[in-house]
Write a protein that binds this DNA or RNA. Structure first.
Lengths: 238, 238
DNA sequence: AAACTTAACTTGTATATACAAGTTAAGTTT
DNA sequence: AAACTTAACTTGTATATACAAGTTAAGTTT
């Protein structure tokens, strides 16, 4: 599956901005100039620019042009869907994952509700502790529908579940609904994490969907509050 | 300024989904059928569908169609940029805003950094306490560049600053970069909010930009942890 | 000097056309 | 019955054209 033309143009312009070749408050070349440069139609250029704008790289102003935004502040992880492994890799942190438990089980009421399954369905239930710089910071509790992910191993969970799903099973993870709240730590949190006396825990609950809109995963990611940081780029809806 | 055709089509379809006329897992009519129905070209329909997809209303599947998603869970506030007033109105909560302080001041190092201003610029500095159901839950600390917002009154701050900016000054708020962290309460937090013994506070820091990409506002919104909730719809970047 | 006009740019919207590529179900071959 | 083929659908990409509407700077009028 080769990338589309507008996607290649997006990649190149995004890189130029990230590498500092195009700086904040610069104007990009006009759509017509870019069309000439990339031997593409103006509409194709516009698709690439639309993506740049959605991802916080540029701001388009009618009559004026495309202004490069300051991306230094959105270091990471521009909301989006990023696995812990991908994130840790990019941040260059010494991260370690320990699989606390992995089992295949019949759904209970809680999971039936969250994964919208039948009574009889089975689910993979995985608990993992994430260590960063030798501190146990995050407890990830994942629940995956066994109908969609038939087999799962400790080894896969120690690496990246997402990489396994996408590369081995050919599943395409497409979108998620997330909710961030702050709760009291459970016994489990206290037992598994280095909470250092903190009496709250940040909980990120995600419902994750495939590209055909099937719900296949529910995750609770439980973070020690002082190490939690969520960065978002939001456009106002009008 | 009249709305564009694709925007009107988006509005109508979004309404139909919100009102339950189109239910989760339904397929929308095909692009060609919609084009016929709305007397529009397929490209115009596609623009409307693109918006629906970005806002979490539908999932497009090549060869298949547009699947309606379950929006019951993203009740609010689908990340985005929403003012407290708009939010409280929609939620139907009994909300009250008290202006703790409002003053015009020369920028200090902190504000110069966050608002990227000149040494000599002036800034409006506003502190407001948000009460919901008689509890002081949120402390909003806003800083606005006086060059862009020349005058500001207590009355405006008690209502909605955003409404004033957009309706009175004709400014168009376009996007924001947000960061969510958890911190220790300051003396000010303890004094102004009903913290009920909570020893952490959720801090949402926002840099807010106009449609010409000018940074005009920095805000810290400080929430009591048990009342904080952030909902997000995220698409995976590939 | 100030106010206005205009021309040349910019992006935004809408349309039409062509073909690629994925899905589905009916029909055909094995 | 199972496997394959095909036709008719679906969405995705790419192009070209036309005009609307915002910006800017040079030129013109007052």
């Amino acid at each position: 599956m080769t990338k589309s033309k507008f996607r290649l143009i997006y990649d190149e312009l995004a890189q130029e901005i990230q590498k500092g070749k195009r700086k904040a408050n610069d104007l990009l070349p006009s759509e017509n100039e870019l069309a000439e440069k990339y031997q593409a139609s103006r509409e194709t250029i516009r698709k690439a620019l639309k993506l740049l704008s959605e991802h916080g790289y540029i701001q388009k102003v009618q009559g004026k042009g495309s202004i490069v935004l300051d991306i230094s502040k959105i270091d990471f992880p521009i909301s989006g869907l990023v696995s812990f492994k991908e994130l840790a890799d990019k941040m260059g942190k010494r991260a370690r994952t320990t699989v606390v438990s992995i089992e295949r089980q019949r759904v209970n009421e809680f999971l039936k509700e969250h994964l919208q399954t039948q009574e009889s369905e089975e689910v993979w239930s995985v608990a993992r502790v994430r260590e960063i710089d030798q501190e146990k910071i995050i407890l990830d509790k994942d629940f995956l529908r066994a109908e969609i992910v038939p087999s799962l191993t400790k080894e896969v969970c120690e690496q990246s579940i997402y990489a396994y799903l996408e590369k081995e099973l050919g599943l395409v993870v497409s979108f998620a609904k997330k909710e961030i709240t702050v709760e009291e730590p459970t016994e489990e949190d206290l037992k598994l994490l280095d909470l250092e006396g903190y009496s709250t825990i940040v909980v990120v609950k995600s419902h994750v969907y495939l590209d055909d809109a099937r719900l296949f995963q529910y995750t609770e990611s439980r973070h020690r509050p002082d190490k939690f940081r969520f960065v978002d780029f939001a456009r106002r809806v009008r």
